[in-house]
Amino acid sequence: GKELVLALYDYQEKSPREVTMKKGDILTLLNSTNKDWWKVEVKATANDKTYERQGFVPAAYVKKL
Rank of each mutant, 00 (worst) to 15 (best):
G1P: 11
G1I: 12
G1C: 15
G1S: 13
G1E: 12
K2V: 12
K2M: 11
K2D: 08
K2C: 15
K2I: 13
E3A: 10
E3S: 11
E3T: 13
E3D: 11
E3F: 12
E3K: 07
L4I: 09
L4E: 07
L4T: 06
L4K: 10
L4M: 11
V5L: 10
V5D: 00
L6H: 04
L6M: 12
L6A: 05
L6I: 14
A7K: 01
A7G: 03
L8T: 04
L8C: 12
L8Y: 03
L8S: 03
L8H: 03
Y9R: 15
Y9G: 06
Y9H: 11
Y9Q: 12
Y9V: 10
Y9L: 10
Y9S: 08
Y9W: 09
D10R: 02
D10W: 03
D10C: 06
D10T: 05
D10H: 05
D10L: 02
D10G: 05
D10F: 04
Y11I: 00
Y11E: 02
Y11K: 01
Y11D: 00
Y11H: 04
Y11S: 00
Q12R: 10
Q12N: 14
Q12T: 14
Q12C: 12
E13G: 14
E13R: 11
E13P: 14
E13F: 05
E13W: 05
E13L: 06
E13N: 07
K14W: 04
K14P: 03
K14Y: 04
K14S: 10
S15Q: 06
S15H: 11
S15A: 08
S15G: 13
P16D: 11
P16M: 10
P16E: 11
P16G: 08
P16T: 09
P16K: 09
P16Q: 09
P16C: 09
R17D: 11
R17W: 14
R17S: 11
R17V: 10
E18N: 05
E18R: 04
E18M: 04
E18T: 08
E18D: 04
V19C: 07
V19P: 00
V19F: 06
V19K: 02
V19T: 05
T20W: 05
T20Q: 04
T20S: 15
T20D: 03
T20V: 02
M21A: 02
M21N: 00
M21H: 01
M21C: 07
M21W: 01
M21G: 00
K22P: 00
K22I: 07
K22H: 09
K22N: 10
K22T: 08
K22Q: 07
K23W: 04
K23H: 05
K23Q: 11
K23N: 04
K23T: 06
K23E: 06
K23S: 07
K23R: 10
K23G: 05
G24A: 02
G24F: 04
D25P: 00
D25K: 01
D25Y: 04
I26D: 01
I26H: 04
I26E: 03
I26S: 03
I26F: 05
L27I: 07
L27E: 00
L27F: 06
L27G: 06
L27V: 06
L27Y: 08
T28R: 10
T28Q: 09
T28L: 15
T28A: 09
T28C: 14
T28E: 09
L29Y: 01
L29Q: 00
L29R: 01
L29W: 00
L29D: 02
L30N: 02
L30W: 03
L30E: 02
L30F: 03
N31F: 06
N31H: 06
N31V: 08
N31E: 14
N31R: 06
N31Y: 06
S32H: 06
S32V: 06
S32R: 06
S32N: 07
S32L: 03
S32C: 13
T33E: 14
T33M: 12
T33Q: 12
T33K: 11
T33G: 08
T33N: 12
N34D: 14
N34E: 09
N34S: 09
N34L: 08
N34G: 09
N34T: 05
N34K: 05
K35G: 08
K35T: 10
D36S: 10
W37S: 02
W37H: 02
W37Y: 06
W37T: 02
W38V: 05
W38A: 03
W38P: 01
K39P: 00
K39H: 09
K39W: 15
K39S: 06
K39D: 03
K39L: 15
K39M: 15
V40R: 00
V40Q: 00
V40N: 00
V40M: 00
V40G: 00
E41N: 07
E41L: 12
E41H: 07
V42S: 11
K43C: 15
K43F: 12
K43L: 14
K43I: 15
A44H: 14
A44R: 12
A44D: 10
A44I: 15
T45G: 10
T45Q: 13
T45E: 10
T45P: 08
T45L: 14
N47H: 12
N47T: 08
N47E: 11
N47S: 10
N47Y: 10
N47P: 08
D48E: 12
D48W: 06
D48R: 07
D48I: 05
D48M: 07
D48S: 10
K49H: 12
K49P: 09
K49F: 11
T50H: 11
T50R: 08
T50Y: 10
Y51G: 11
Y51A: 11
Y51N: 09
Y51K: 12
Y51R: 10
Y51D: 08
E52S: 14
E52T: 15
R53D: 04
R53S: 06
R53Q: 06
R53G: 05
Q54K: 08
Q54I: 14
Q54E: 08
G55H: 02
G55F: 07
F56G: 00
F56H: 04
F56V: 06
V57K: 00
V57Y: 01
V57S: 00
V57I: 08
V57Q: 00
V57C: 03
P58S: 03
P58V: 03
P58D: 04
P58I: 05
A59T: 05
A59R: 09
A59C: 07
A59N: 03
A59F: 01
A60N: 14
A60D: 11
A60F: 08
A60Q: 12
A60M: 09
A60Y: 08
A60G: 13
A60T: 11
Y61R: 06
Y61A: 11
Y61N: 07
Y61Q: 06
Y61P: 02
Y61T: 08
Y61D: 04
Y61L: 15
Y61H: 08
Y61I: 08
Y61G: 08
V62R: 01
V62T: 03
V62L: 15
V62M: 06
V62I: 07
K63A: 09
K63I: 14
K63S: 10
K63D: 07
K63F: 07
K63H: 10
K64G: 05
K64I: 14
L65W: 07
L65H: 05
L65G: 03
L65V: 11
